[in-house]
């Protein structure tokens, strides 16, 4: 089996690769979201802290 045969997926390349591609994109986004959110939350908490000290 050559690489080209593998990529061709018996002619079903569009459906197979779109399916796997979509799954990978969605699942990576679902991990990336909470990671970004955590950073954002920690930043917000830091700001809250500083404001608390001033008063």
């Amino acid at each position: 089996m050559t690489l080209l045969d593998f990529l061709d997926m018996d002619g079903y390349y569009l459906y197979v690769w779109l399916s796997f591609g979509l799954a990978i994109v969605v699942m990576l986004a679902l991990v990336n979201g909470p990671m970004k959110r955590k950073k954002q939350l920690l930043k917000q908490l830091g700001r809250k802290k500083r404001r608390g000290q001033r008063t």
Binding site: M9, Y12, Y15, V16, S19
Partner: peptide, 11 residues
């Protein structure tokens, strides 16, 4: 179904 069945592994 040839290679199209491979969608089963995510579906």
């Amino acid at each position: 179904q040839k290679d199209s069945y491979r969608i089963i592994f995510v579906h």
